[in-house]
């Protein structure tokens, strides 16, 4: 029961955070970061197995792997950004959180931009004149 371990860890961390926030706010932020990293590491293996199954499915369906790879990159950027934003917001640094969010949006746009241009170019070619 992995979820029981995670819930237990989350409860302990929350209680410790409640105490630390009043006594030592800096340590509270550090604890929050450590907890995020632990959860991320624990879920990494499971995430990899999901991705392997999906990769196998795309291969069997003979769907262009490029689609899948780019979507996964975008998903990775989104997840990492969300983690960072949550940590920054926990620390009360709203401005930094906004910047991380902005950067992630730009990176996702950069990844999607060539595809958008290709679609637009193709549509423009179809237009008469």
């Amino acid at each position: 029961m992995e979820i029981a371990q995670i819930v237990g860890l989350a409860l302990v961390t929350t209680i410790m955070l409640l105490i630390l926030r009043q006594e030592k706010p800096v340590l509270a932020v550090l604890l929050s970061i450590v907890f995020s990293i632990i959860i991320f590491t624990l879920m990494m293996g499971k995430m990899a197995s999901i991705l392997n199954v999906m990769r196998e499915l795309t291969r069997r369906a003979e769907v262009n792997y490029f689609f899948f790879a780019t979507i996964l990159k975008i998903l990775g950027v989104a997840y990492l950004a969300e983690f960072a934003v949550a940590i920054c917001q926990d620390a009360g640094e709203q401005a930094v959180a906004k910047k991380v969010e902005f950067a992630s949006k730009i990176i996702i746009a950069v990844l999607a931009l060539p595809i958008m241009i290709a679609i637009l170019e193709s549509l423009m070619q179809l237009m008469p004149g």
Partner: peptide, 22 residues
């Protein structure tokens, strides 16, 4: 699997582009 947040619409847009290509 998408994370809940302000980035979500951007990711949905990118996925939409792939569906358009398909």
């Amino acid at each position: 699997l998408l994370p809940e947040g302000r980035v979500k619409p951007f990711v949905r847009f990118a996925i939409g582009l792939f569906i358009i290509i398909a």
